[in-house]
Amino acid sequence: MKQPSSAFTVWRARWETIANNRKALPILLVLGLLLSFAIPQFNLVNPYIQLIIMYVGINIILTTSLNLINGYMGEFSVGHAGFMAVGAYASAVLTTQVLPSELNPWLFPLVVLAGGIAAGLVGLVVAIPSFRTRGDYLAIVTLAFNMIVKSIIENIEAIGGPRGIPGVEKLTTLPWTFFWTVLAVWVIRNFIYSNHGRGVISIREDEIASDLMSVNTRQAKLLAFTISSFFAGIAGALFAHLLQFISPRVFDIIKSTDILIMVYLGGIGSITGSVLGATIYTVLLEVLRPLGMWRMVLMPLVLVLLMLFRPRGIMGLREFRWLIPLQDLLGSKRWRQKKEASDATPAN
């Protein structure tokens, strides 16, 4: 009885030391970047696994950005795939119809950015109903938005209508996926640990009280929706240039449901949770592939069981220390130390 528990303590202590050593973070990032170049260069893992890694990255972007609305702001948006569609189509139109194809690899970052901006602008529009409606009614608005986007695309012949755009160039590479994923996670984390992000979180806690504590709730909602949809658009652009074929059906409500599941699996209000949720879900789906159709029966069961035993998801409202800015982590402690120091020296 004693042996395992002491081993556990040892491991726990080791883990604490690692977790407290933030210097490892930049090293890991550089390592990750190098690996993202090395893997395709030297074929360190087979192309199938490379593909899955890229899907994991895209799903992390989608999950983290949706978590901003559903987890941090406490709304229930069910139309994230709609924003993804805007980004995917905007970027795919650029690479297939507008830009000369020999320039595509060079302009790809700008193309992805354009996809993000297009989706962000649309997000601005969707934010406006959120001034008036909340909760279930806002959920309907986002749902309707998803359907409307799909329906509009189906009705524009210039972008392929219901048939979609085939033959999108495969421009999404491992290094680019790594870059955009890190950027998305970093920016959303920055936003959350800022004045504006705290405003967004206070809306989740109590919108009326937050308004009465001087939080400009409209501004906070606009920001949250725009940022969230911007990154959904980025993910959509990467997705389009990985899948190499997009059609309205790809971005229907089922895709949105997938993203929702990843968010709640990982846990609301947690970036760590979103990274974990997206990774676990994507990898698990692939690992269970040999089960054939039973895989799709098993996955929902896993989700239901998780909700029953851990209703807040894996990391609900908790965050891994490395992701919290030092100022937030230590601010109060530093203040107390300073105060003790000044209390110790008698004032003259």
Binding site: T257, I261, Y264, M296, P300, L301, V304, P311
Partner: peptide
């Protein structure tokens, strides 16, 4: 008595289960 949204996600899960089953 859990957060309301957990029940909604559970319902989504049950729905997916029924479809795929």
């Amino acid at each position: 008595n859990a957060p309301r949204v957990s029940a909604i996600i559970t319902a989504l899960g049950v729905g997916l289960f029924l479809e795929n089953f």
